[in-house]
């Protein structure tokens, strides 16, 4: 049973089907952080402008701070916690961010990594300008972006070489 103002939403979260009883005004980020305990996704501007809260909804980067929980019914949600493999191997994007020192305070980093993952899923071979334009969806106040762009290019490289291994 649920109370009249709650309703059930079921979606895939990092590969597993999951459901929550949510309020109509509840945002996806609140469900992720407060109900699912996935605090890697970060809230910042709360207006969908900065991208710190970026998660993948059916593979598309989405600002979870302006996505209602009910909007993701039956969708596939991936967060930073779901990016590395079950046995702990990092995603090539994560590995590249580490190698290129592409983060500082780290608060935008989960969102940046998810944004980059979405790019490489859509375009495995982006040129530098395509990376620059795509990554402009999110704000990083620390790095000046160049080292992020280099990491994304390198991750694309790593992706491609792993395909041909």
């Amino acid at each position: 049973m649920m109370s009249a103002d709650l309703f059930n939403v079921t979606f895939r979260l990092n590969g597993s089907e999951t459901s929550f009883h949510v309020r109509p005004e509840e945002m996806l980020i609140d469900v992720l952080r407060e109900r699912a305990g996935l605090t890697g996704t970060k809230l910042s501007c709360d207006l969908g402008a900065c991208g710190a809260c970026t998660v993948l909804v059916d593979g598309k980067p989405s600002a979870s701070c302006v996505t209602f929980a009910w909007q993701v019914v039956d969708r596939d949600i991936r967060t930073i916690e779901g990016l590395s493999s079950g046995d702990g191997d990092l995603d090539p994007v994560q590995a590249a961010f580490i190698e290129h020192s592409s983060f500082q305070c780290g608060y935008c980093t989960p969102g940046m990594i998810m944004l980059a993952r979405a790019l490489l899923d859509e375009n495995p071979n982006p040129n530098r300008d395509e990376v620059r334009q795509w990554m402009s969806a999110n704000i990083c106040r620390c790095t000046g972006y160049e080292m992020i762009i280099e990491a994304v290019q390198d991750a694309a490289e790593r992706n491609r070489s792993s395909l041909y291994e």
């Binding site: 996935l38 605090t39 890697g40 996704t41 970060k42 809230l43 967060t79 930073i80 916690e81 990016l83 590395s84 990092l90 994560q94 961010f97 580490i98 190698e99 020192s101 983060f103 780290g106 608060y107 980093t109 989960p110 990594i113």
Partner: peptide, 21 residues
Amino acid sequence: ADLPRTDAVPKTTGSATYTVD
């Protein structure tokens, strides 16, 4: 040496704890 930062894994996997968490 350009060693990886010692906070690299927590900050790239979402496990780093900030005050908001």
